[in-house]
């Protein structure tokens, strides 16, 4: 690991066809902290997040310029193995997307892909990460049931457990609480705060209060441009750029 900055974004531009969605974004993401990317809808937050594990490649007509260094390795270099990049990151999407299989299989899916065969070890890992995600006690008796029978809040924690089970270094959250009720949101936020002891966390959100609650490091994205970044306390207390100030006070949203 590259010590303090596991992810370093260097002059990243992303185009959807002729539309430039990200403009020359540079951002260093500190290790074992929660970095929150804020900004109004449509400002490129999700695009920025997806560019980190190369999920953008699945869309057609997308062009990427610039670099994303993961532990010092450029993930957009032609010889980089995509699945290995993705194994280093767990993703929580806006709406929890459970896989069409049982609760147990959802968590075992990733480890199995990466070659874990021992049933005992799989069972151990499934239990361990369901515990970390705070879901174990609710599902221990129904592991073989379809994951879709869980409530949305439970599904999001299942997705968290599933992402952690591939033992990544980084957790990405794309507005991970936007589909959840307040209590489930709080639960997920609490998990993220616990997880930053061991993981580097990057969360995209448009909920300012959420950013205040969990952010160590803050980045403000506006119209595809990274306007301001820094330690969360500093940015909240004294934003340097007038656009950041306007956003934080609710003048632009």
């Amino acid at each position: 690991m590259n010590g303090e900055t596991p992810i370093s974004i260097r002059r990243l531009s992303v185009y959807y066809g002729d539309l430039q969605v990200l403009k020359d974004v540079s951002l260093d993401i500190p290790a074992r902290k929660i970095t929150v990317i804020i900004g109004p809808s449509g400002c490129g937050k999700t695009t920025l997040l997806k560019s980190l594990n190369r999920l953008l490649d699945t869309a057609e007509g997308v062009r990427v310029r610039g670099q994303v260094l993961l532990d010092g390795e450029d993930i957009y270099a032609p010889r980089t193995e995509v699945t290995r990049i993705r194994k280093k990151m767990g993703l929580l999407s806006q709406k929890p997307q459970v896989l069409p299989m049982s609760i147990y299989e959802n968590v075992a899916y990733g480890p199995r892909l990466h070659g874990l065969k021992s049933k005992k070890e799989l069972a151990r890992r499934v239990e361990h990460y369901l515990r970390v995600a705070g879901l174990w006690d609710e599902v221990r008796d129904r592991l073989r049931e379809p994951a879709s029978t869980l409530s949305v809040g439970q599904q999001q924690r299942l997705c968290l457990a599933r992402g952690l089970a591939v033992e990544p270094e980084i957790i990405l959250g794309d507005e991970p609480t936007s589909a959840l009720d307040p209590q489930s949101s709080q639960n997920v936020e609490r998990r993220l705060l616990e997880l930053k002891r061991d993981y580097t966390v990057v969360v995209v959100t448009h909920i300012l209060r959420q950013a205040r609650r969990i952010a160590d490091h803050l980045a403000f994205l506006y119209l595809g441009e990274l306007v301001e970044q820094g330690p969360a306390a500093e940015v909240f207390a004294g934003p340097r750029d007038p656009r950041t100030r306007a956003y934080l006070t609710g003048e632009i949203s």
């Binding site: 999920l55 699945t58 699945t83 993703l91 892909l113």
Partner: peptide, 21 residues
């Protein structure tokens, strides 16, 4: 698409996503 992305983000190849998901 998000379901395919969920599978991909766990490190699945396209073939694995196709067959398993």
């Amino acid at each position: 698409r998000e379901l395919k992305e969920a599978s991909a983000s766990l490190g699945a190849t396209r073939f694995e996503t196709a067959v398993k998901v």
